[in-house]
Design a protein around this nucleic acid. Structure first.
Lengths: 127, 127
DNA sequence: CCCATACTACGAATTTTATCGTAATAAATA
DNA sequence: TATTTATTACGATAAAATTCGTAGTATGGG
C-alpha cells in the first residue's frame, strides 16, 4: 500500500534532480541559475517544472519562507540503479558487462576510480 | 555539410532499433511480432513508428517488394556511446567510474565478461 | 504607508511521442 | 475474374513534456 509508484524522471526533471543532488537543497532561483549556465531557460519554466515534480513526489519543499526550498525526494543511487537497469535492457540486450566495457573504453576514469573498480572486480571474481 | 544532425532515439524507437540490431533486417510484421512478445501494441503503431524513423533517418528501407524491409541506419555501438555519455553526464556527474561500479555492483555479469573487463582494466591501468 | 522587487500560482500554447482507425492498393487465392 | 488478405499511407487523436506569459501576493526599502 501507499504511494510507491515507480517514478521515472523525464529528461528535464533529471537535470533538476542533478542540481538538487549536488547542492542538497535549492530555491527555484538557485536551480534556474544553475540550469542557465548550460541552456536557455526561463525562470518560470524552472519554477513550473519544480512544481510538477513536487506534485509527482520527486521533490519535497519547505514553504515556510517566501522562497520555497526544494530537496530531492528520490536518491541519486536509487535513480541510478533504476535507469542503469533500463539501459542494460534496452541498449545492451541485458548484458551489464557490455555496458561496463562501453563506459570504460570510451570515457576516461581517474586512477583512483580504476583502483576501486579493481577491488570490486576482485570481489566479484571470488564468487 | 550533410545531414549529420544528432539523432536521439526515443524510448519506443530504441525498442525497435533493438529488434533491428538483433535480426539484421526486418519487415513491419517481424518488428510487430517481436514487440508483441513483451507489450500490447497495434500493427499500425509499429508501422507508423518505422515510417517516422525512416523520415528521421534512423532506419533505411528496401521498397522493392510489397513488404518493405527495414534496417537500422545507426549502429548499436554509436548509439550506445551517445547514450552512455549522456547518462554519465546527467546521472553520474561526469564520472564514468561511478557508472561502472553501479552496473557491476547491481547486475550480475558472466565470468567471461568479468575476464574481459579485467583485461581492459589492466590496459587502462598501464597508461 | 507606498512602491519596487521577488516570488508563487495558474493556465494556455507548443512540441514531441505514441497510438490507432480508415482508405487505398497490390497480391494471392478461390 | 472476383474476392479475400496483407500491406502501406495518411490523418486524427491522445498523452506527455516543455515552455512561458500574466496575475496575484508578500516583503523590504524609502
Amino acid at each position: 500500500m501507499g504511494p510507491n509508484k515507480i517514478l521515472k524522471p523525464t529528461e528535464g526533471e533529471l537535470e533538476i534532480l542533478q542540481v538538487l543532488w549536488e547542492k542538497g537543497d535549492a530555491t527555484v532561483r538557485d536551480v534556474h541559475e544553475e540550469l542557465s549556465r548550460t541552456k536557455d531557460i526561463g525562470y518560470t519554466t524552472a519554477l513550473k517544472l519544480l512544481q510538477i515534480m513536487y506534485e509527482k513526489g520527486l521533490v519535497t519543499r519547505d514553504e515556510s519562507a517566501k522562497s520555497h526550498i526544494y530537496k530531492a525526494a528520490v536518491s541519486r543511487e536509487k535513480t541510478q540503479k533504476q535507469l542503469v537497469g533500463k539501459m542494460i535492457n534496452t541498449l545492451f540486450a541485458g548484458s551489464p558487462g557490455q555496458l561496463v566495457m562501453q563506459a570504460l573504453g570510451n570515457h576516461q576514469a581517474s586512477s583512483d576510480e580504476l583502483e576501486q573498480i579493481q577491488k570490486l572486480l576482485d570481489n566479484l571474481k571470488k564468487k
